[in-house]
């Protein structure tokens, strides 16, 4: 898979992602504080470039890792913030995620997954672990549960949502049934387990995991990723 030259299949990168066709304009940089590359990213060649940075990081290349950080920190921090909500903790989660990425970079295998998926898997796990351990520590803290039992639309995410990729994801999410979308939102952004999601959405026990799986499959197909990965 990774041995196929990029030009062989028109419109497909070495990792099988469907390229954006050229008539679509390059996405605008999200309006931010002008930090050089934190928001800017081009899908074309993106994964190959990040994979290379991760490969070099595995050998201790701190410059490469700095570039990886710049290319991905808004995504990692943004996700951490959605999941743990508190900015100070989101920073800690982000830091933990990047340190873990640095530490385990040699385990990344580009033939089996993209660099961004590797990084975001680590980041998401760190965020979820943090929010669940905080919950366990302040067990039965009513205010925490009160603010978390509705399906929210985070205004921070709305403000940052100027990137093309964000619109692409939201469009793909609209293709899901409302239950699938709500289940995935609670699971992914809320850090809830599927059994908790079932309770929160008044679903029979065990059905939330099916909704999540069906929704994620649809999302995957709509976004055109991960389709040609074989074992």
């Amino acid at each position: 898979m990774s041995g196929r030259p990029p030009g062989e299949s028109p419109g497909r990168s070495a990792h099988g992602r469907i390229e954006q066709v050229d008539e679509k304009p390059r996405h605008l940089e999200p309006a931010d504080d002008g930090e050089a590359t934190s928001g800017g990213r081009a899908r074309k060649g993106d994964q190959a470039a990040l994979g290379e940075l991760l490969r070099r990081s595995a050998r201790g290349d701190e410059q490469a890792f700095a570039q990886l950080y710049d290319a991905t920190s808004a995504r990692v921090y943004g996700l951490a913030l959605r999941v743990v909500r508190d900015p100070a903790q989101a920073q800690e989660v982000t830091q933990e995620a990047y340190l873990e990425t640095w530490r385990t970079a040699s385990r990344f295998d580009p033939a089996k997954g993209s660099a961004i998926s590797w990084l975001m898997t680590i980041a998401h796990r760190k965020g979820v672990d943090r929010v669940r351990s905080a919950e366990a520590a302040s067990r039965r803290d009513t205010s925490y549960h009160d603010t978390n039992n509705t399906v929210e639309h985070d205004s921070t995410a709305d403000a940052a949502e100027t990137a093309f990729e964000a619109r692409r994801v939201r469009t793909a999410l609209k293709g899901l049934t409302s239950v699938q979308r709500e289940a995935i939102t609670l699971a992914y952004y809320g850090g809830y387990t599927h059994t908790e999601v079932a309770t929160m959405l008044d679903l029979p026990v065990g059905t939330a995991k099916t909704r999540i799986r069906d929704g994620m499959i649809r999302l995957r197909d709509a976004l055109g990723v991960g389709g040609d990965r074989h074992e």
Binding site: D33, E35, A74, R75, G78, G113, T156, I184
Partner: peptide, 13 residues
């Protein structure tokens, strides 16, 4: 791969 892209809808510098 799909879940990694969900983060694109929540980017924050």
């Amino acid at each position: 791969e799909a879940s990694a892209l969900l983060a694109d809808a929540a980017t924050t510098t």
